[in-house]
Computed example of a mutant assay.
Amino acid sequence: MAYLKPFLLAAAAFTALDLLWLGVVARGIYARYLGQHMRPSTDWIAAILFYFIFLSGIIYFVVQPGTNNSGMAVLLRGAFFGMVAYSTYELTNRAVLQDWPWPIVLIDIAWGTVLCALVGWFSWYFSQNTT
Results as ranks from 00 to 15, higher is better:
A46D: 03
D43W: 14
R94L: 07
A13G: 00
F126N: 05
L20W: 15
L49A: 11
V114D: 10
A85S: 12
V62W: 03
A26E: 05
V105C: 01
A13D: 01
Y125H: 08
H37Y: 11
A73L: 11
A11Q: 06
A31W: 00
Y60R: 08
T42S: 08
V114C: 11
P65C: 03
M72K: 08
T15Y: 04
Q128T: 15
A95F: 05
Y51L: 09
L97W: 09
N68I: 13
C116M: 04
T131K: 07
I29R: 07
C116D: 05
L106P: 14
L97D: 03
G28A: 00
W124G: 07
V25A: 13
L22K: 01
Y33L: 07
Y86Q: 01
L34I: 11
G28V: 01
A73N: 13
F80H: 04
A31G: 04
A10S: 02
I53T: 10
L49K: 09
I59K: 00
L75A: 06
P101Y: 03
V84H: 01
D99Y: 04
A47G: 02
P103M: 00
F54C: 00
N129L: 01
S41Q: 12
E90Q: 13
T92H: 01
T131P: 13
A73P: 07
L34T: 06
T88G: 10
R39H: 04
A73S: 07
L49V: 15
T130I: 06
V63L: 08
G66H: 09
V74W: 08
Y125K: 07
S70Q: 02
Y30V: 03
T88W: 12
G112C: 05
G66T: 07
Y86H: 05
L34W: 12
G120I: 14
I109W: 03
V24Y: 06
W102H: 05
V25Q: 04
Y60I: 14
F122R: 05
A95W: 03
T67C: 10
I53Q: 05
R39W: 03
R94A: 10
F7S: 06
I45S: 11
P40D: 13
F50I: 09
I29P: 08
T88F: 05
A16K: 05
Y30A: 06
I48V: 09
M1H: 15
I59F: 01
Y3G: 12
K5E: 12
L118I: 14
L106T: 08
V74A: 06
V84S: 00
V62T: 02
A2N: 11
Y86M: 02
L4I: 07
R32G: 14
I45D: 09
L8I: 14
F52C: 09
L106S: 12
W102S: 10
N93G: 14
F81G: 09
D99F: 07
V119M: 12
S56G: 10
D18R: 09
N129G: 00
V105W: 00
P6G: 04
V25I: 15
L115D: 11
I29V: 14
Y30R: 04
F81N: 12
